[in-house]
Every structure is written in C-alpha cells, then in structure tokens.
Simulated assay, not measured.
Amino acid sequence: MMTIDVTDVNETPVVDAGQMLRFDEESPAGISIGLVTATDEDATDNAPVFSIQSGNEDGFFSIDAATGELTLLQEGVNRYDYESFSLLVRATDQNDAQLYTEENVVVNVDEIPFSGGAGTEADPFRIKTPKDLDEIRNYLGSSHADKYYVLVNDIDLQEYLSEGNPGYNNGLFWERLGYYENFEGHLNGNSFSVLNLKINRPNEYINGLFGYVNSAEIINLNVSVDPLAEIVGKSATAILAGSVSEGSIISNVHVSGKVNAEPGNVGGLAGSFINGSVISDCSATVEVVSTGSAVGGLIGANSGTILRCHVEGAVTGGEYVGGIAGISNDQRARV
C-alpha cells in the first residue's frame, strides 16, 4: 500500500506589513538601507525571492533577491526633492511563481543639516543646495559664531523661490538669513554664485540674502538677482545684507541686479555698514532706486572702511546719493 505525504506543501510567503526603512539624504551610493523581511513556512528549505514591483521608477534602489537587502544605487538624494519612497515589494515562493505576496515598504529620507561637514574651520558645513543655504537660518546668534560654511557649487534659487516650493513664502520670496538673531558665522563662497535671488517685502526692514550680519565674515561670493525681478523692501535693504556691523569682514563679494526700497539706507551690496567693519575688493553691478536718503551703489549708509571696491550702474535717490556710498557719516569712515 502506497503512503502519500500531504504535509509537505508550498506556502505563500508573506512580506511583513508596515515595514519602514530610512537613510540620510546626500548618502553615498552603495550603502545598505536595511532588510525587507518576509515570513514563509517553507523558509528552511525554500527562502522567498524578493523583487521591487513599483515605486522605483528612477532606479534609486536595488533589492537582493535572496536576502531582501535594500541598497541605495544613486548618490545625492535630497529631502527637498524626495521625502520618502513607497516601494511595492514582492516575495515569491522559489518553487511556485504563482505563490507570492506584495506589500508597500516605506523608505524615509532623513534630513541632515547640510550636505556634509562638521561646521568647523577645518571641516566647514558644505552648502550644495538651496535648502542648505536656507538651513543657515537655524545657526544664528552668538552661540553659532564659531560655525563655518563653504559653497561647493553654484546655488540657483529660481525653482526654490517659485510657487509651491519652500522659498516662495506667499509671494514674499527669500526670507533674509538673520533678523531676530544675527548671522555671526564665517561663509566662504569659494568663488561660486547664488543665482536668481528674489525678495518682495515692501513692508519689511533689513532685507537681502542676509539680514543682520554682526561680527561675521563673508568672502569669495557672487550674488545675482533674478533678472526678471528685484530686491524690494523698506530701509536697510540690499542684495547681500541689510545691515553689516561690529567688525564684520566682507571681502571679494560681487553682487548684481536691481534694488528698489524705501525710505532710505539702501545699497547695492549692503544697506548700512557700521562701526569697524571692513569691505574690501568687492563690486556691484546694479540699479539702485529709492526716493529716500542714504542711497549708494555699494553701501547706503557707511561708517566702516571700504577698500578697493567699485560700482557700475545707476543710483537714484532723494538725498545723500553716491556711487560707492550714499553717506559716510562717521569720522572713522574711510573710502
């Protein structure tokens, strides 16, 4: 008499539900993100075969068919572009392709402050994206005066400032870095450019890429305004900074574009430049417009030191109007 063993049957593998993996933005290609897990009654003899069915159209990930290990294939994934991925993962029985289960596995992209670096002089924070540049606003005040930043490429703000993106701000566009607290760190532009800056804040004071700059250093940087727009604000408005004070150093910085602000202290590079600060080897190719006082192609109101700088363009103002500075009103001021 023949006996048939009916207990040895293939079971459908089941991808464990609710799995969530994560990795840091700007991670290098080739890192392991983690394991996708599945249960299978036949696992001791026949481990399931893993595959990604959808959610990976851009080819960011691969999955090991035998182990379920998920690997990042492309570097430079940024949380501004991708906050998370939902991958439909299938686990298939090795002996029967008809037996499979699919589940969504969520892969979150964790935000890191910048695109690398430790913020020290030897290893500065690396500014690679508009989000990196915007992140500086979280490192203001005297407690962050020891922070160093370096641009590693040009930063184009056009998309970041467009409607539906983080810098749009209901049509006010870029919010200056430093208002309630000063920027007091050290930024090296590395001869790269911030492009397509746009500000439309006619009811707000202290406007520019930076707001208040105090005891800080900004060097080797180019900043240009969106050619179809302008920098609009109230007093102390310019392209680089609204107000620069307390021994700050601005060197080899070049700005271009249009500034239109009221009622005064309006400049191409800085609105006001105060007390012991030094600006050297800088230039402005600008149109500066105001009906108020202290309107300058480089600086609106100056009481610092200006060395080896030049301006090209047109400056229009009510009174105290100049190509380099609208007014230098301190005995220590020197142009």
Rank of each mutant, 00 (worst) to 15 (best):
Val194Gln: 05
Thr3Gln: 15
Glu287Thr: 15
Ile31Pro: 02
Ser193Thr: 14
Val286Gln: 01
Ser280Leu: 07
Ile4Asp: 13
Glu103Val: 08
Thr237Gly: 04
Gly264Arg: 02
Leu221Phe: 04
Val107Thr: 05
Phe114Gln: 01
Leu72Ala: 13
Leu151Met: 14
Ser54Asn: 07
Ala43Pro: 05
Ala270His: 06
Leu161His: 10
Thr71Lys: 10
Glu217Ser: 15
Gln98Thr: 08
Val288Thr: 04
Lys128Tyr: 10
Asn196Ile: 01
His144Trp: 14
Thr101Ile: 08
Asp45Cys: 09
Val194Met: 03
Ala241Trp: 00
Val106Ser: 09
Gly297His: 05
Lys234Thr: 13
Asn78Gly: 02
Asp146Arg: 10
Leu228Val: 05
Ala118Leu: 10
Asn169Gly: 02
Leu87Arg: 00
Asn10Leu: 12
Val311Pro: 00
Ala118Cys: 06
Thr316Ala: 15
Asp281Leu: 10
Tyr179His: 14
Met2Pro: 13
Asn203Pro: 03
Ser251Gly: 08
Asn182Thr: 03
Val194Thr: 05
Leu209Arg: 06
Ala17Arg: 03
Asn165Pro: 06
Met2Thr: 07
Asn260Phe: 09
Val106Met: 11
Glu69Cys: 12
Asn190Ala: 04
Leu157Pro: 02
Tyr100Lys: 03
Val315Ser: 01
Gly30Gln: 04
Arg126Pro: 00
Ser248Gln: 04
Lys234His: 13
Ile155Val: 11
Ala91Asn: 09
Gly292Tyr: 06
Glu69Asn: 14
Gly264Val: 12
Asn302Ser: 14
His186Ile: 04
Asn260Thr: 07
Ala284Gln: 04
Glu103Trp: 02
Val9Phe: 10
Asn104Gly: 10
Ser193Ala: 15
Lys128Arg: 15
Ala38Phe: 03
Arg332Ile: 09
Ser143Asp: 10
Glu312His: 12
Thr44Asp: 14
Asn214Gly: 03
Gly116Met: 09
Val335Ile: 15
Val109Ala: 02
Ser51Ile: 01
Ile52Phe: 10
Asn170Ile: 07
Thr44Phe: 11
Leu70Cys: 12
Val107Leu: 12
Val311Gly: 00
Tyr82Phe: 03
Pro263Leu: 08
Ile299Pro: 00
Asn252Met: 08
Gly18Gln: 11
Val286Glu: 02
Gly267Gln: 05
Glu83Ser: 09
Ala43Trp: 05
Asn153Cys: 13
Ser51Gln: 02
Val225Ser: 02
Asn169Asp: 08
Ile218Gly: 05
Ser251Trp: 01
Val6Tyr: 14
